[in-house]
Each structure stands twice: as structure tokens, then as C-alpha cells.
Design a protein around this nucleic acid. Sequence first.
DNA 1: CATGACGCACTGTGATCACATTTGCCCGAA
DNA 2: TTCGGGCAAATGTGATCACAGTGCGTCATG
Lengths: 222, 222
Amino acid sequence: MPDTLTRLPSAQPDAPVQAAHDRVYRGLRQQIMHGELPPGHALTLRGIGKAFEVSMTPAREAVRRLSAEGALTLSASGRVTTPELSNDRIEELAQIRALLEPELGSRALRRAHLALIDRMEAINESNARAVNLHDPVNYIRTNLEFHRTLYLRAQSPAILGLLETVWLQLGPTMRVLYTRLRRTTPPPYHRHILEALRAGDDAALRLAIRTDVTQGLKHLQN
Amino acid sequence: MPDTLTRLPSAQPDAPVQAAHDRVYRGLRQQIMHGELPPGHALTLRGIGKAFEVSMTPAREAVRRLSAEGALTLSASGRVTTPELSNDRIEELAQIRALLEPELGSRALRRAHLALIDRMEAINESNARAVNLHDPVNYIRTNLEFHRTLYLRAQSPAILGLLETVWLQLGPTMRVLYTRLRRTTPPPYHRHILEALRAGDDAALRLAIRTDVTQGLKHLQN
DNA sequence: CATGACGCACTGTGATCACATTTGCCCGAA
DNA sequence: TTCGGGCAAATGTGATCACAGTGCGTCATG
């Protein structure tokens, strides 16, 4: 049992005292979504437990939760790996993104204001830096942050939640994708998205988002 | 530890020897999706364990998995209940259905054959019987089966998987909905769906599905 | 050199237990 | 009657353990 100090309310008053399994869940989730792990990477409950300094029990619960979201694959014998997606599955997930994200963008458009667009602009610059440094993890992270910043304005938590599970499933695959291709320019359609936002043009925004989403994953022909 | 007999391969050769936590998961999942539990219904790990004749451990894993799918709600202190959805959340989930289901229907249309339509027709009759008997559980079950039978033909497992988690979240809410309203006629748009399928009319099918999905949940004004 | 069988280390599963927290209820006071 | 305090039962959490199945490396054999 860890020190009782870890059970005391944290310094930040609104931060709930997170349970061990939740801490493990969040840690693993971030690693997967940001593409820190390649597809097919094997994990063990004891290894996860050691990494987060907990026993197998919270590790197991975090794994169970993540596999329910499709972020991890369980073999028939219970072995845990990051998912290796077939081409069909990748295409299907891209189609889901192409279905949900324009809808979220459109909903956000009505509530968008200048400060939001400025923030997205700044994130996009971080994204461009990550491209120059050939840093896949930061590339994926800032790319998702760009999209999420917009979608948060849609005030549609259920749709966004669903979308995040799709992102999760694609995390390891995106890693190999962005590691493989050595671009030096940021995603071109981010500019289109920003322009459509400024213009308040719904149709253009939907098209730009759909293209951005589809484009990125099209390069992946196994 | 249960009898070792339960570990032996089952009589059906292709039925995998399901782990205890998986059996619990499937049992609870069905209860929730079919509307056997009202919203806000409280569950306990020890109670679940006793009901399925297992210890707390598999019960906890099943609950963790279901709550990751939105089928159960965990309070801050870890208490487990079926979700009580706000009106906003219900509308949002209905909009997701209205987004995904016409797409699945359209994909299935290209592969649909007469035997499929006949099967759907038969399910629809079971559905009508459930309406007459004012049997919410069988109503929900046959209604979902009607839709799923069609969507399975879409050959889009990722989208269908996502959609099923939406159905799961709506299960308890649908129970109160269908218990409250005392109709004697089956959902009228099922006929439209079948007609559009027979005619091979994509636009009509999309509209019929969207209307069927939206209609059902519109009656729910808290 | 290739191949297959053996065995051991490793891994997930489920039961059990101690513990801290929460919940619900009862009783007494205003 | 209503509100509040306190206690006991109930509940989730996490650690630990025994066990069975898996998988991989090794070694012997062809």
C-alpha cells in the first residue's frame, strides 16, 4: 500500500484524488493516443504495474478499460498488445472521422470566436515545428490538439467522446505513418480550415476538415 | 474456485471457453442494452458477483469495461449505476444514430438480397407482437435486431461497433420511453425501410432510417 | 544445417483479505 | 415535524497469492 500521503487531497482543490487505476489508465491512454507505442507492441500487467508503481490489480483495470475502447487488443489468451490495424479497418476508421469531424466542426463554427482561431493558429505553428523536427509524437499531439480545440466548441460531448476513441485506435498506426513519411511541410488543409472558420463558411469548413482527415490516412498503403 | 468442469471445452466446438469476467460482461451488457434495468439502477460488485456466482474480481472487470462503453456510470466514490441521461445527452446520442445508421443502411443496400429482407420482415413481426403485449424488453430487443440484421450486411464492423455502444447507453432510457408510451402499433417507418430496400432506393432508405431513429426518441420530453 | 519436441519462465485469471470511505438510518434536540 | 449528528453496515480499492495456460528458447535428433 502506498504512502497515505498520496491519498490526501492534492494541492489543486478541484483535482479529485485520482484512484491508482485511473492514473494508470490516463498514462497509458496518452502514450497510445500520441503514438508513443508502435502497433503490435506487447504489454504485461506486471510490467505496467511496475512502471506506475502499483500492483497488478489497477493495471488490469486500466487495460480492461482501454481494450473496451479499442486502444488495446487482447489475444485469446489475454495477452495485451497495441492494435495492428488491417487496411480495411484503417479505412473504416478514417471514414468515421470523415463522418463525425465535419459535423463537429460545423457545430463549432456557429460558436467560434477570434480567440479560438488564434489559439488554433498557435497550435498549428507548434505542429509545423514538430514536422520540421521529424517528431512524430509531438506531431500527432499537436495535430489532435488542433482538431480538439475546435471541436470542444461544438458542445457535443458524446460525439467528441466517440471521436476520441477513434483517435485512440489510430494512435499506434499514426505513429508508423508519420514516422515513415518524411515531410517538411505541415498539413496543408489546416490553413483551409482556419480560412473557412474566419470566413464563417460552413460548406468550405466541412470540406476542408473532411479532406484533412482523409488525406492524412490515404498515404497509408501497407 | 469453481468446478474444473466449467473450464473444459464446451460441447459446441467453436464456442471459446469464456472467462468468468467475459460471461459477466455479456450478461450485464444484454440486460442493459435490452432495457431490463431502469436508469439510475444501482449495482454492487458483490451483488453482481453473487448473481453470476463469481468473486468481486471478475465483476469489477466487467463493470470497468461496461463503464468504458458508457453502459454504466461510476460515481466519484466508485458506486455503479445505470446512466440517467440528460435531455441534451439523449438528443446528442439520437443525432449520432441519425448520422451513423443511414450510412450503414446505405452500405448494406448494395449487398442486400431477398433472404435478408425476408428475415427483417420476420423480425418486424416479432416486434409487432411485443408491442401488442406491451413488453418493453422484447420490443427493444427485436427493434435492435431489426436494425442490426440490416447493418451487419454493411460489412463495417468498426462503425457497427461504435453504434452498439450508443445503443448500450440508450438502453435504460429506452426502457422508460417504451414503458411510458402505450402504443399498439409497431414503428411505422420499419415498413418504409423495407420498401426502400426492395426498391433499391438509397435516398429513400437513408431518409426512412433517419426518420425511424429520430422519431422514436423525439417522444421523450422529460 | 534444419526441424521438432521438451521444459521452464512468464503471463493472465480469479479468490480472498484488509482497509478507508461512503451511505443510510436512527435517535435526539430544536 | 424537521434538522443534524453519529454510528454501523455496506461498498469500492488495491495487494497478494495460487494456479493453469502460453510461448519461447534450447537442445537433441534427423
